[in-house]
């Protein structure tokens, strides 16, 4: 079934389809969360937030999903869970977010973060395969020495220059995309 069918159903608040989404997707999400430091209640909470996020986003902008609806929903849940798990770290390093944020605001922030991440992944796919490989290793915090082993480059200096050039290409693509203006940090 088309992904837009499920998105339309969320906007319309079609209970039957929402139940169907639970039947097909919840188990997978629950498994992921319970295997990653969460419990059943966390899984329920994340799943509900994800469905609400999709409904609200589709209401405001008719976006398209390139993968299946199920796969996309899983990614959104996974990201919302990453967000929960890193919250403590974020509070420690950013004193300005210690203040209590209202639920609608927090949900809106999560939605913007999701869109930002999608934009970055889209741009990462637009650069050369070679750059994509080097940057994927770099962002995964693999050391330069290890990147030398993983790739055909023969020294850390060469890898460093390659990372620099690839990053430059990636940041150019991001900056030149009009969508980034409403998603970037000020």
């Amino acid at each position: 079934m088309e992904s837009s069918f499920f998105l339309e159903a969320l906007v319309k608040g079609d209970s039957k389809t929402i139940t169907e989404i639970y039947n097909t997707s919840f188990v997978q999400v629950k498994r992921f969360i319970t295997q990653n430091k969460g419990n059943s209640e966390d899984a329920e909470d994340i799943f509900q937030k994800a469905l609400l996020q999709l409904g609200v986003r589709y209401k405001r902008e008719k976006f398209t999903i390139k993968s299946s609806f199920e796969a996309y929903l899983f990614t959104v849940c996974k990201n919302l869970w990453r967000r929960e798990l890193n919250k403590h770290k974020n509070r420690v390093t950013n004193s300005e977010v210690v203040e209590l944020v209202s639920e609608p605001k927090d949900n809106s922030l999560a939605l913007i973060e999701q869109k930002r991440q999608e934009l970055f992944l889209e741009k990462l796919n637009d650069i050369s395969e070679n750059c994509k490989k080097v940057l994927s290793l770099f962002f995964a915090k693999v050391s330069y020495a290890e990147i030398v082993v993983e790739t055909e480059y023969n020294s850390e200096t060469v890898v460093r220059q390659r990372v620099f050039k690839c990053k430059k290409r990636l940041t150019e693509l991001v900056r030149n995309d009009a969508r980034y203006q409403s998603l970037k940090e000020l």
């Binding site: 990453r82 913007i112 930002r116």
Partner: peptide, 10 residues
């Protein structure tokens, strides 16, 4: 393992 938070967006 990380997540990029929107702390100060438009």
């Amino acid at each position: 393992k990380d997540w990029s938070y929107a702390n100060n967006v438009d």
